[in-house]
Design a protein around this nucleic acid. Structure first.
Lengths: 139, 139
DNA sequence: CAGAATCCCTGCGGATACTG
DNA sequence: CAGTATCCGCAGGGATTCTG
């Protein structure tokens, strides 16, 4: 069976995102999306984003409490990365004891809003999802 | 067990997702979402999902070509995990040479659809996003 | 062709200790 | 309070080799 498809992938990915409704993305957009996913798609980042999305302005320790079992190290790294990427604003008050407040930027808020579709999807398919084979689920 | 663990919360977060429009989730839903994120939120999984979403039924090697620079090891692992999690169907044809075809399940398709909001968000904020500090960008 | 198995290196991330 | 610095285990993942 001779493959007539001329679309041979060059070096690197050749993925182009396309929505079921026919919305296609450009390779550049695809690249950006993958990049963003790579930045935010980890447990702590997601948790911190959501905590901030819900509570607005929060201090360092407070975020840690709300997230739960995150180490200071990871909380710091996560927040700094989010700040560097423009999703979070960090405000330091020159006081003693020190006070540092964090809040989402517009970009951060819009990102959380975009993810809303995933929550809704999860809700809709809750039965199937919660019965998935346990993998890293808290024992 | 004489070992004293003063505060060991249920290995837990206290995060509850809530959309900007006021849609709140239950802790259970939150848990499921985090679980799903943990399953799919990595470079290769996302790529493979998208490749399958676009092209429908694909063979092993073809997926690898479309994704680009993925190793066989990771491709296998990724596909098996997706299969185990119910996002992909794996069909083996008892032939020589062997032929194995992959395709998304309904759940897989719906997940990709849910992520559509993220592509749209990325498109809208393309300027800000593509100018983020390079981190692990690999062309 | 579609993988399984192996080697091996990297870095994520937890725990702990110290500081302004 | 809000970090920084350090040690370190271990899992992720690339490259390579073997096989039905």
């Amino acid at each position: 069976m001779p493959e007539q498809k001329p679309k041979q992938p060059p070096a690197g990915r050749a993925v182009v995102f396309e929505s079921p409704t026919g919305e296609t993305s450009t390779p550049e957009l695809d690249d950006v999306v993958m990049d963003v996913i790579g930045r935010i798609a980890d447990k702590w980042t997601m948790c911190v984003l959501e905590v901030l999305a819900q509570n607005g302005v929060l201090r360092f320790t407070r975020i840690g409490d709300l997230v739960g079992s995150i180490s200071q190290r990871m909380l710091t790294k996560t927040l700094r990365q989010l700040e560097e990427d423009g999703f979070v604003i960090r405000t330091v008050y020159p006081e003693v004891p020190p006070r540092v407040e964090y809040q989402l930027t517009e970009l951060g808020h819009s990102l959380c809003a975009a993810f809303c579709g995933v929550w809704l999807w999860a809700e809709k398919h809750y039965d199937q999802l919660q019965s998935l084979p346990k993998k890293a689920r808290s024992a």
